[in-house]
């Protein structure tokens, strides 16, 4: 019984049920498939998060984002006059997370690649591009660089999905893909 000591003193030498052995082999094989799938997808898959990241001071990141916006702003939207920035394909694109805003609005071209840099200027945030459903953690002091190639035109919402205080649910940004 599981509530009493095993009946054999040397319990690690007792034979194993056939069903147990079969199951262990099956389960271990599946575990190895799961494990190997990850490196496999790094080689053959198209959706891998790059591990390119840097430490950066919030002011330095903000300055880079501002410089990009000054150069490539095409119009302004919303009452808050948020710039809509259209950087050339292949360029470095910056998206700032801060309480409680994604800045600026980006306008990208379909099937073109961009180097998207993200960082937070204050607390932790969660980049969640919807409805395509891409979710990445955003930390202050760290700059993540993702190579993205949007494959469908449309208007995407940028939700914050890491709790960041009382205005968290108002933190919404936008990416246009044309």
């Amino acid at each position: 019984m599981s509530l009493t000591p095993p009946n054999q003193m040397i319990w690690w030498k007792e034979p194993i049920h056939r069903i147990e052995v079969t199951w262990i082999i099956l389960a271990l094989s599946w575990c190895l498939v799961l494990f190997l799938w990850m490196p496999y997808w790094h080689v053959f898959g198209d959706q891998n998060l790059s591990s390119e990241s840097y430490r950066i001071k919030p002011e330095a990141f903000e300055a880079k984002a501002k410089a990009m916006a000054d150069q490539y702003t095409v119009r302004k939207e919303t009452k808050m006059e948020i710039p809509v920035v259209k950087p050339p394909p292949g360029s470095d694109v910056y998206l700032v997370a801060r309480l409680w805003q994604w800045w600026p609005i980006l306008e990208l071209e379909k099937d073109k690649s961009y180097r998207l840099h993200i960082s937070s200027l204050d607390w932790q945030h969660g980049l969640s591009i919807q409805p395509v459903n891409i979710n990445v953690q955003v930390l202050p002091g760290y700059e993540v660089v993702m190579n993205i190639t949007p494959n469908q035109a449309g208007e995407y919402g940028v939700v914050c999905n890491e709790f960041c205080g009382i205005g968290h649910h108002t933190m919404l940004g936008k990416i246009y893909v044309k």
Partner: peptide, 24 residues
């Protein structure tokens, strides 16, 4: 969650946000 709804979020209709986004 598979459709992208965030956890720890008070208003997924974003009524107080500067922009609009509509979940499915």
């Amino acid at each position: 969650g598979t459709l992208g709804v965030p956890r720890r979020h008070w208003d997924i209709n974003f009524a107080d946000a500067a922009m609009q986004y509509q979940f499915a």
